[in-house]
Design a protein around this nucleic acid. Structure first.
Lengths: 359, 359
DNA sequence: CCAAAGTACTATACCGGTTAAGTGTTCCCG
DNA sequence: CGGGAACACTTAACCGGTATAGTACTTTGG
């Protein structure tokens, strides 16, 4: 036969029918035995289990999905531009945390990127219509997030990573951005800083807004000045925002960046401008990563156990599709890792900041 | 009823049976119409298609998988330690390239991390036994790679990203590490360098070996000295290896690092030791990324179109599971992006390398 | 004008699981 | 000793598609 499609080479994978005929019982009996259901004697169950493990039986995910209406898989979509690095170790950690929880139940994770939010929503609709997934994990909740509406409309189970704000009926696994911001402000105030700045992430994200509000409030409470410049997580914006802040009439003595990448490029800009870190400027990064340890001085950063959050989200997802009522979960507060980029600010304006800056 | 499992809230998703009853035909007729098979009149086909799109019909992936024996999904597993960042933008680009190709056919991608290679192999076995995937993408081929044996034994389709060496019968999408190494050596020799070094990746990887051999050969051909230090892609090893090289009796004037992260920490070490870059030391990174643009001076790097490779791999995977014979594919040669970290080496030993180094 | 061929379907089996309902034994108890 | 329950299964339907065989009706040709 010409044009053979590797016929005959396919290895027949065992089914419960194979086990049944070997054990001399019916498919139903095998199913009962494998699933721990009553209806078979201990001896028969034993024999069936032995045969199953001997021939390396694993149930067909498709057959099971078709039969019990569960896909046995969850979905995770990213629609951030792929080039904003530094955030990406986040995904690896999140995924390994999620998977650690799911692999025990042989649940798979569909992971992919999408061009934009519209494409992401399309993907949810398609996945749901095709019964590819039993639910999805949502990231980076936005102020009026269309995804939440769509998922609620589809009655599609979802767990939000980020913030319970604006998640509607969707359960959230969240870190307390407000408290974490307070921690940073307290720490900097304790060092003697009086003028703080923040280079924010994209303002349409909820966590950006929460952190902005928290900074304003914490600064007010501590009697500090606080200013904010908008960034977008890229190093370019981090650099630009930093230049702007340092050139201003009353530059801050400490800057909190919304991610590690911007913090890192901010450090580079400061050093390039002859501003000593931490002598004249302290730097704090939100999201700890190897990047923070890599630069000189290394960056003080807020660390969060992302894998643990992923695992918690996965657990809640399993409960949710199991039909339980699931509530929000607040992660342990992020820990401030103190490194070389923060310190007591140098004496106020008027003194020459450093030798080489003399006109 | 207590303990209700959200009964009654489930939205019934449409099936071909729904379309059939609406159109007044049988399921078979609907199937023929939807799949462009003969057996229905143009008018009926039209009517069925209209109903299908009106009710938003999408075929159940499980039913289709069960029926035609295809999972409609491929798998991708990473078993690198999650903390070696800098490499990770690689995955995002690869995945988006793969998905760009697969989404057209509504094929899904299962992505996950594994503790080690044994866990990765277990996962392949499980996926295959459960018919979860139709094939897998393999990364970071090792010298005697157990995964290749397992996949061949299972007759499980697979596409290798990396090198055709040691991939056995598995088709590979690969970049020419040998030629790329030659490009770098030529470039550095042209600048006047005579002593090159390389901080390698993990030696059990094929591409590490290929690059090592290529460097030795290219250096010999150009009449240059070449040395090699082993790294493992982490910044710690990059730093340590760099210190070792720069402290040696005859330090190199140029170092090629096997990834961006090591190159970056190598730059930090050099600067910390008072070695001017690129004056006294030129630095080249394998794998371009935002990191390379972020540091001062920015890093000369080899750039590869990872998304394009992913797309090519996905195309070949589809052909492979379709039963076609699929061969290896060589990617266009990586491009050397010249940045500030490379230049003409300063005059040979004996001159004081820099002011502050005086005893 | 009637058989052969084509058209447009229908009926049905199948993929590999799960599960409700049915059947034949054995056991227990009044 | 007879009837019901408990046990250990079997039978058969179902999930939602695909594919093959069969059927009724129309068209064609010698």
């Amino acid at each position: 036969m010409a044009g053979s499609r590797r016929e005959g080479t396919e290895v027949k994978r065992p089914t419960i029918a194979d086990i049944a005929s070997r054990a001399g019982v019916t498919k139903a009996a095998v199913s009962f035995a494998l699933n721990g259901q009553p209806g078979v004697s201990a001896a028969t169950r034993e024999r069936i289990l032995a045969i199953a493990s001997e021939i390396g039986f694993q149930p067909s995910s498709a057959a099971r999905a078709l039969s019990d209406g569960r896909a046995g898989a969850f979905g995770l979509v990213v629609d951030r531009p792929a080039r904003t690095l530094g955030i990406e170790s986040f995904f690896m950690q999140l995924i390994s945390g999620i998977q650690a929880e799911l692999s025990r139940d042989h649940i798979a994770l569909l992971f992919t990127t999408a061009e934009d939010q519209a494409a992401e929503i399309d993907l949810y609709r398609t996945w749901w219509a095709q019964r590819r997934v039993d639910g999805v994990f949502l990231l980076d909740l936005q102020l009026r997030d269309q995804r939440v509406n769509t998922l609620q409309e589809l009655r599609m189970p979802a767990i939000v990573f980020g913030t319970p704000k604006g998640s509607g009926s969707l359960p959230a696994v969240w870190q307390d951005d407000t408290a974490a911001t307070g921690t940073v402000v307290e720490y900097l105030a304790g060092l003697g800083h009086r003028r703080l700045a923040r280079v924010s992430g994209i303002p349409r994200y909820w966590h950006t807004k929460l952190r902005a509000d928290a900074l304003r409030e914490a600064a007010r409470a501590a009697g500090l000045e606080a200013m904010s410049v908008e960034g977008d997580y890229t190093s370019e914006h981090g650099a630009e925002a930093t230049r702007e802040l340092l050139r201003s009439a009353r530059p801050p003595t400490a800057i909190l960046y919304d991610n590690d990448l911007m913090a890192m490029s901010g450090l580079g800009v400061a050093q390039h401008m002859g501003v000593r870190v931490p002598g004249e400027l302290s730097i704090v990064a939100w999201d700890d990563s190897v990047l923070c340890e890599l630069v000189h001085p290394s960056l003080t950063a807020l660390r969060r156990d992302i894998a643990a959050a992923g695992a918690e989200g996965a657990r809640r997802m399993v409960e949710l599709v199991g039909g339980s009522e699931v509530g929000d979960f607040q992660e342990p507060p992020p820990v401030l890792i103190r490194r070389g980029s923060t310190g007591t600010p140098s004496p106020p304006d008027g003194r020459p900041p450093h030798p080489s800056a003399a006109p």
